[in-house]
Design a protein around this nucleic acid. Structure first.
Length: 104
DNA sequence: ATTTTGACTTAAG
DNA sequence: GCTTAAGCCAAAA
């Protein structure tokens, strides 16, 4: 299988359970490139599989919401995550409660 | 093929 | 605590 870096990133992003979020660095590391956090963001922006790839469950390492090219932007993403049960700390995600880690 | 940009992260000032 | 700089990777121009 030709799982390129981006395909892995999309797959991993899709694998994030509802109510949880993963950081770009985390996804990048799972995809095989620990330093590819930026690349992950770039791929999310491309997001060819938008309704299939839950790109809104990927956030910055600090739990801060960044990017989101779609309509509504950050506010929309925040509302969406909050509706899924993600715990927010003010205007950021509480990674201590909603931080996702891949169970192998 | 080379250069630029970007939804990152960490370190230093 | 916030701003600036540098390092990393991949896609787009």
């Amino acid at each position: 299988m030709k799982d390129s870096f981006k395909e892995k990133v999309y797959k991993i992003t899709r694998a994030i359970p509802k109510g949880y979020v993963a950081t770009y660095g985390q996804v990048a590391e799972m995809a095989g490139n620990k330093a590819g956090a930026r690349a992950v963001g770039a791929l999310m922006r491309a997001n060819p599989d938008a309704p299939n790839t839950t790109c809104h469950r990927v956030v910055a390492d600090d739990g801060n919401l960044t990017g989101y090219s779609a309509k509504g932007g950050i506010e929309r993403k925040k509302a969406m995550l909050l509706a899924e049960g993600v715990k927010f700390s003010g205007n950021k995600i509480d990674l201590s409660k909603s931080g996702w880690k891949n169970p192998v």
